[in-house]
């Protein structure tokens, strides 16, 4: 049976302007799927996010196979693979902010 883990990287957090999430170690996982749940905020339509990767959890670049995702509703989701050992999200929103929950669903 394959191992799996769902981590809540942000919980009812108001993100505003440029942001990155906390990093998470994912070397054990072969596949990952982001779920970005918009909980409120006047500028929800302006939330944009993309996946970042890192060799060491300290220095980051965008995942070349990912694109910039924009919110089109209350729940945004997309898969990522071949991400190495670390993941986080980079994004931006209006200065007024958007409240979100961000889940990362991992599986071997």
């Amino acid at each position: 049976m394959r191992q799996s883990q769902t981590a809540v990287l942000e919980r009812n957090t108001v993100l505003s302007g440029e942001f990155v999430t906390e990093p998470i170690e994912v070397a054990w996982a072969g596949q990952a799927r982001w779920f970005v749940q918009v909980l409120g905020g006047a500028a929800a339509e302006h939330l944009e996010v993309t996946t970042q990767i890192s060799p060491d959890g300290l220095t980051w670049c965008d995942l070349e196979t990912d694109t910039v995702h924009s919110t089109e509703g209350s729940l945004l989701s997309w898969p990522v693979t071949a991400f190495g050992g670390w993941l986080r999200l980079r994004g931006r929103t209006a200065a007024s902010g958007v409240k979100v929950r961000i889940y990362l669903s991992l599986k071997e």
């Binding site: 919980r11 070397a27 054990w28 959890g57």
Partner: peptide
Amino acid sequence: DFRPPQLSSCTFF
């Protein structure tokens, strides 16, 4: 905000 535990390979720069 107590953060999710992670399965770490103890990888460093």
